[in-house]
Design a protein around this nucleic acid. Structure first.
Length: 318
DNA sequence: CGGGTTTGACCAGCGC
DNA sequence: GCGCTGGTCAAACCCG
């Protein structure tokens, strides 16, 4: 059994996608750290999208900007409370932090009362100051995923705070915010107008906490050592992998998870994910709605752990 | 009752 | 300046 395994970076405005093949024999998972110059360029801040995506013409890594993970060894648990660190986003964001930096802690979500006060202050400031500092955005990572479920589980808890109709798309865009009080990560979810079976998920920022379902260092079939590596790889890929794992669980049986992307990028490499014995309760709700007759679904059998993606010689924990 | 979703309103940025 | 669009807010609503 084979399934296509891609991570796609997607420019929502230009409808343009860059992509790498997670399961390529040439490009191991370790490359996601940015240690491989031929591969790392595909991991970078999408802001500003217009500028960066112009160079995201797969496969032309030489023209791509540097990866977001300048610190390959940073542990997720030790991520700074201010994820939009200079090493990552300063070069790409020009919107000053009217709400972030002015709050001292960039990612801190104040209490509702404080928030309202801050809103009032910001409103007053926006009225009093003609040119307030521009807002500084977090780094963003976009994934294009084939799914019939709009909001894929990724191990974190999200609260929907908005939905907007998108220009040139019949599908609305949903806005989610991490429910953790100390985490300001956001994500946007929308369906691709070109291919309604594709869901574009854009993460903004980095989680400052462990996933609620990734407790005790082991979950979704991942070994603790694997989790450690994922922490090192950064939250983006962790999120993506979790998303895949959990998405597969929504099928309740091991089945194909097709991340194929349109165009000439299609290849046929394989990875796989097993059924998980954990966290099913989390997935019950969405699994109710998932159409298991998806054309892309088929069954597979193997481990589905990090080792299924990362070549053995590229792992350190074995 | 607490937490999450919906949805209209509002605001800021940007292009013309 | 104006209109368009994306992003966010917040009241109302829903649900367990």
């Amino acid at each position: 059994m084979e399934r296509k395994e891609f991570v796609t970076f997607y420019d929502q405005q230009q409808q343009q996608a860059g992509m790498f093949d997670m399961s390529s024999s040439d490009l191991g998972f370790m490359d996601l750290l940015g240690t491989n110059q031929d591969f790392s360029p595909y991991l970078y801040d999408m802001i500003p999208q217009q500028q960066q995506l112009s160079s995201l013409q797969y496969p032309s890594p030489a023209a791509a900007p540097p990866p977001p993970f300048s610190e390959a060894t940073s542990d997720l648990t030790n991520l700074p409370a201010t994820p939009n660190s200079d090493s990552i986003s300063s070069a790409t964001s020009n919107e000053a932090a009217t709400d972030n930096t002015e709050h001292g802690n960039n990612n801190k979500i104040s209490s509702k009362q404080d928030k309202e006060e801050d809103d009032q202050k910001s409103k007053q400031q926006s009225k009093s100051k003609k040119k307030p500092l521009k807002k500084q955005r977090e780094q963003r990572y976009a994934f294009k995923t084939q799914s019939e479920v709009d909001h894929l589980e990724d191990g974190y808890r999200w609260r929907k705070y908005g939905q907007k109709a998108v220009k040139n798309s019949p599908f609305p865009r949903s806005y989610y915010r991490c429910t953790s009080a100390t985490c300001g990560v956001k994500k946007r979810v929308e369906r691709c107008s070109d291919d309604p079976s594709m869901v574009v998920t854009t993460y903004e920022g980095q989680h400052t906490h462990h996933s609620p379902v990734m407790t005790r260092g082991s979950s979704i079939g991942m070994s603790q050592s694997s989790m450690s590596h994922f922490n090192n790889y950064g939250s983006m890929m962790q999120n993506h992998y979790q998303q895949q794992q959990l998405h597969l669980q929504q099928h309740q049986q091991p089945c194909m998870y097709n991340l194929q992307t349109p165009g000439n990028y299609s290849t046929t490499t394989t990875t796989s994910v097993p059924p998980s014995t954990a966290h099913h309760s989390l997935l019950h709700d969405q699994s109710r709605h998932y159409n298991t007759s998806s054309a892309s679904a088929s069954y597979l059998r193997d481990h589905g752990l990090l080792q299924d993606i990362v070549q053995s010689d590229m792992r350190k924990d074995e």
